[in-house]
Nucleic acid binder design. Structure first.
Lengths: 252, 252
DNA sequence: CCTATTCTTGCACGTTTCTGCATGTATGGT
DNA sequence: ACCATACATGCAGAAACGTGCAAGAATAGG
């Protein structure tokens, strides 16, 4: 029995029966309950199920679909996400960008944290629906399919009407010379609009983004408060960034 | 029996029957009354029910509506949804309301239909992400957790800037005298705003909604083009609606 | 091809959480 | 005022949980 088989089996059960009981599955498949629990824990960490005492329940289909397609669960992203989640203060207002790293942040937020979350990503909004204390505000606009977020003039305009303590921004490239970059001009504009509405802006970038550049500049270094990454603090590029005066928070 | 299942069962009872009697539930599920009381206490602490001597009552129509919608996923909605999906013309613009019936419509739309979909539901937006030919426009605003849609002043305002050929509206009650109703005032206002922006508005109502009324009026009969339901066309209430001049499309 | 390392899996242990019962108290009806 | 029922609390057994550990499998490196 391969681990991937177990995972599929569990996801199948969740889809077909709406629940999974750890004990039953263990008996059915002839494996230990510990393995089932471990699998469920991992699936829950990826946002593919909701862990409950005794087993697990499905999360909303939209979230599952999306999370299954993207690999939210890469270790680097998870580390960055929990470091970022630690910056969110109870009662504060948070602007959360789209993208898988930001989605990981949403999953890393404590379930009963009382805060306001502003986002242009329907996926992130869906992921936070079960946070009873969280106030959600969705920025509307034309949906860009490849990144599944609202962008464009309407979204940027909607962003003008909010303000927040903290903005967590995902980018696809962090390069000492090219700066913070992303692959789409509309997305870059949207990120700029979001960052402009927060007192502090931190950029999330798992290690593979460090030292790379995409096509469109998002922001100059001066506009951001810091960078959160799991890259080695003594990495050459990271050292360069620090030399530019950038605060680098290590997520490890 | 998982704790979460008991919770769902209780919420379902609250929604369907409007009350829960601790003793009866304990007998039905074969668990102790103490467990039921504990669950009800927890639900009340989360604001999902109102604890009374001997059991519990629903706290607000909106919550009840949502819990009920969560628990049911029946055939009727699918029938209504595919009948509604057939109204959508290629190249057209569709306003899709939130709610599970509307979500079913989203799933019923052909995968490569070229059309523009405007919605205030992040869930529906997420469901349509894999329709490559569909243009999506999301109306933003404060997210109402109970129904997982954007409502409130910002959302209504955003709706003013769109227009469409067709609006498909879900409601929780269709009653000859009370009209089209739903459980939450903000949702009702949002639905009104959506309907006002479309040339044609059709109301989706699976059979169990027919003849029932919720607390808030959405629209008068004159404002809608027709009703799509899987109820028996010779049902007494349906006949009454037809007598009012309403076009009733049978989904079967 | 062999060895070292990492990963996975199941087991054992201590800890936490749940659940039903028993007791005493509070509530509502008669 | 009385009684039946519902309630809160404490308790104990059971179930589920997390963690550390060791044996085996898979992988990487020589």
């Amino acid at each position: 029995m391969l681990a991937a088989e177990r995972r599929d089996h569990l996801l199948g059960l969740l889809a077909r029966e709406g629940k999974v009981v750890a004990k039953d599955v263990a008996a059915d498949l002839g494996i230990s309950e510990d393995s089932v629990r471990r699998d469920l824990r991992d699936l829950a960490a990826e946002g593919l199920c909701q862990r409950v005492y005794g087993g697990a329940l499905p999360v909303s289909p939209a979230v599952v679909d999306y999370a299954a397609r993207q690999s939210v669960a890469q270790d680097g992203k998870r580390k960055v996400a929990s470091a970022a989640a630690a910056l969110v203060r109870p009662g504060g207002t948070l602007i959360l960008d789209g993208g898988t790293t930001a989605l990981a942040v949403a999953h890393a937020l404590p379930r009963d944290l009382a805060c306001t979350v502003i986002t242009h990503s329907p996926t992130i909004a869906a992921a936070l629906l079960d946070h009873p204390q969280a106030e959600l505000f969705l920025l509307g606009g034309r949906i860009f399919k490849h990144s599944a977020v609202a962008c464009g003039a309407a979204a940027v305009e909607a962003a003008q009407n909010v303000s927040a303590d903290l903005c967590l921004l995902g980018v696809t490239g962090v390069h000492p010379e090219a700066g913070l970059t992303t692959g789409d001009a509309e997305e870059a504009a949207m990120k700029r609009a979001l960052a402009a509405r927060a007192a502090d802006t931190y950029v999330l970038a798992s290690s593979e983004k460090i030292g790379t550049a995409s096509r469109f500049r998002v922001l100059p270094w001066e506009k951001i408060s810091g960078l959160i990454t799991d890259a080695d603090p003594h990495d050459a590029v990271v050292e360069q960034l620090k030399a530019l005066g950038l605060e680098v928070l290590s997520a490890n």
